[in-house]
Amino acid sequence: MNTPENKAGMDGGPVRRQEWRVPARMDGLTGLLAKVEAFLEAAGWSLAASHPVLLAIEELATNTIKYGYPAAAGTLEVVLAVTAATADLTLRDDGMPFDPVTAPPPDLDQPVEDRPIGGLGLHLVRRQSASFVYRRLATGHNEVHLIFHSLAATLKSGFQELH
């Protein structure tokens, strides 16, 4: 991570950085999302701008919890570094290898009535992040790195509210 705390960000503002570690269980996820939401709010991120970041954590962590640990229990690690304009999110888990970046996209051209439901979460993450990169670490961890920009979301929501 190249964004130590208090270093000036690209917008000239400070970088806020926080790490969380939670057990890879669904009941750990709700509390984690609440903490991340509070952190983003304290960093000045609007609800509209924060939503894609929270969505990415929920979708990727849910996947990992459901499919990454067929036997043993594990730990999820979340690292978030934000400026007023950019959020840099890293998710690590010690579960089975899985690359969410290359997972096949859902077929949204089919009629709603008979469209299969799988794959939608990763599709949303892909569409709402500015960068989405996976690597398997030598330590046996999956690491997903994402970047989000706050301004587009904030402007878009402001524009919609005007109408």
């Binding site: 609800l47 509209a48 924060s50 939503h51 894609p52 969505l55 949204l108 709603v112 469209r115 939608l120 599709h123 949303l124 569409r127 709402q128 979301a153 878009k156 929501s157 524009f159 919609q160 509210e161 109408h163």
Partner: peptide
């Protein structure tokens, strides 16, 4: 709300949105 609406639209489910107000341009 806008962020929620965006998720619905990106999921290909705009058909569910029933607001009477016209679509934002």
């Amino acid at each position: 709300p806008p962020a929620v609406r965006e998720v619905i639209e990106l999921s290909g489910l705009s058909i569910l949105i029933r607001d009477e107000t016209p679509e934002p341009v």
